[in-house]
Design a binder for these strands. Structure first.
Lengths: 247, 247
DNA sequence: CAGTGGTCTAGACCACGAA
DNA sequence: TCGTGGTCTAGACCACTGT
C-alpha cells in the first residue's frame, strides 16, 4: 500500500545516491565495477544493475559499455527560451555549446508535407542543427522551409541551436513570421537518441509551426532535447489595454 | 555499432508491438500471463519482462500487480494550452475530465517562499487540483497565492484543471496578471507519481510564475502531467508594428 | 485458495574498450 | 588479452487480486 516500501535495489540505489552526494566519488570519477559493488552489497549483479539503472535515469551516473560507470558532472542545463525568437534582439549565443548545421535540398515526405501544408513531394530546404557540450549532444533541431515560401541558403555563424538563423534568412527574404505554435511533449528516447544524448532520460520534444499573416506555414521545426539537461521557457505578456475597471 | 541491433528482449517487444497493432488483442483486453508468454517465446521470464517494460514505457501496455498485463486504450491526450490563460475567454472546460480541488491555508516553506519571493513562513493559500479520466489521473496542479497578494476563497465549479479559477478570483480581487513565465521540464516519475498516473512514462513538469505590473509574484503553480497522455501548447504572436519595409 | 506480477539469485556467455 | 558492462537463464519466493 505504501509506495515508499523499498525493494532491495531501491535501498541500494538510495545508499549509492547518498554516497555520491556525500562526495565518496568526485564528478567524472569511476565507480567500482558492478561485480565489485554487487559483492559489497551482497546482492546479485542483476539486482545491483537495477539500482544503477535508477541512478542513470536520474542523470547521476553515466554508463560506458566496456569502460565502467562514472559519476556524472552536474553540468548546466541547456535552455530553449521561446521569447528570444519573438523579440527583436537576436539570442545571445551560448558560447559553451558547439553548434553545427547541415543543409539539404529535399522533397517533402507525406508527414512533413501535411505539417507544412504543402503537397507531398514538394521541394523544400531541410536544416539539421546539432549542438554539443562536453562529450554529449545537447540538442537536435530539424527545420523545414518549403521552396514555395523561400529558397534559402546556408546560415552564417554564429549559429543558434534553435534555427534562429533561418528566421533571419526568412526575414531577409521578405517573409515575416506572424505567429508560432509550439507543442511540447515528452517520451522515452529511442535507441539512437539514447546513444546520441548518452542518457536514458526522457526526451523533451518541441514542435514549432510558424505562420505568416496569411496563415501560411513558413517554417516547421522539431527540437529534441535531453530531459535531464534541458528546459524550455515561455514568457507570456498579458494584453493589458488600459482598462477602466479599477475597483 | 548499429544501435538497431536487437537483443532478445527487443525482438520480442517488436513482435508483441506488431501483434497488438494487428489487433490480436483488443484495447483493454488481457495479455497471456508472463509465464505463458515466456514459454511461447522460449525465453526466461526476466527476459520477457524486459520486453514488456518497453511496451509499458511506450504506453501500449498497462500492468496490474496480481491481475495481469492489459492492452491500453489509446485514449486522448490532455492538452494544456497556455494561450487560454492569456486570452479573455475562459477555457472551455474539457467535459471528459473529472476535476477536484483542495484548498488549504498554509505557511510558505523555504522552497515555495523563494519562488513566491516572500519570507519563509508567510501565510498563503494552497490549491491542489487533480483531474482524472477513465481510471487514471491526468494532471496534478499545485498553486500558491500569498496572502500578501490576496486572501482568496474556494473556486466555484466548473473547475479547470490548470487553476484558471484562481486567476478569476485574483482578477475579482483586483489583482491583475501582467506576465507569466512557464518553465517546462521532463523527468521520470517518482514511485508515487508512477502509481498516480498508472504509468512509468516521463512526467511533464510545468512551473508557472505570474507577476503583476510591478513585478510582484502573484501566483506560482506546479503542473504535473503524464508524458504519454498530455501535451503542452504555446502560441506566440509576433509583435508586428506596421513596418514600412515592403521589398 | 489459485493465479498473477514483483523481485531476487548465482551463474553464464557475449560485446566493447583500453592496453 | 583482460576487465568492463549488456544480456540471458532457470528457478525461487513474495505480494497482490479475485474467488
Amino acid at each position: 500500500m505504501n509506495p515508499t516500501m523499498a525493494g532491495r535495489y531501491q535501498t541500494i540505489a538510495e545508499d549509492l545516491r547518498r554516497l555520491i552526494a556525500a562526495g565518496n566519488w568526485r564528478a567524472g570519477e569511476q565507480l567500482p565495477s558492478e561485480a565489485e559493488l554487487a559483492s559489497q552489497y551482497r546482492a546479485s549483479r542483476p539486482t545491483l544493475r537495477s539500482a544503477l539503472d535508477l541512478l542513470q535515469a536520474e542523470g547521476l551516473v553515466e554508463k560506458f559499455h566496456g569502460r565502467g560507470n562514472f559519476v556524472r558532472r552536474p553540468g548546466d542545463r541547456t535552455v530553449y527560451d521561446s521569447a528570444r525568437h519573438t523579440s527583436d534582439r537576436p539570442s545571445a549565443p551560448d558560447s559553451t555549446l558547439r553548434v553545427s548545421v547541415e543543409v539539404r535540398r529535399a522533397k517533402a515526405s507525406a508527414g512533413v508535407a501535411s505539417l507544412l501544408q504543402v503537397q507531398a513531394g514538394s521541394p523544400l530546404t531541410e536544416y539539421e542543427y546539432v549542438s554539443s557540450a562536453d562529450t554529449s549532444v545537447r540538442s537536435v533541431t530539424r527545420l523545414y522551409v518549403p521552396h514555395k515560401v523561400a529558397r534559402l541558403g546556408r546560415p552564417e555563424a554564429p549559429l543558434s541551436p534553435w534555427g534562429d538563423n533561418v528566421r533571419e534568412l526568412l526575414t531577409a527574404a521578405g517573409v515575416h513570421v506572424a505567429s508560432s505554435v509550439e507543442r511540447v511533449t515528452s517520451r522515452l528516447p529511442s535507441a539512437k537518441e539514447r546513444e546520441l544524448f548518452r542518457s536514458p532520460a526522457p526526451v523533451l520534444v518541441v514542435e514549432r509551426t510558424s505562420r505568416d499573416v496569411t496563415g501560411q506555414v513558413v517554417e516547421w521545426a522539431l527540437l529534441l532535447l535531453p530531459g535531464d539537461r534541458a528546459e524550455v521557457l515561455f514568457t507570456t505578456r498579458t494584453h493589458v489595454v488600459n482598462r477602466e475597471e479599477a475597483g
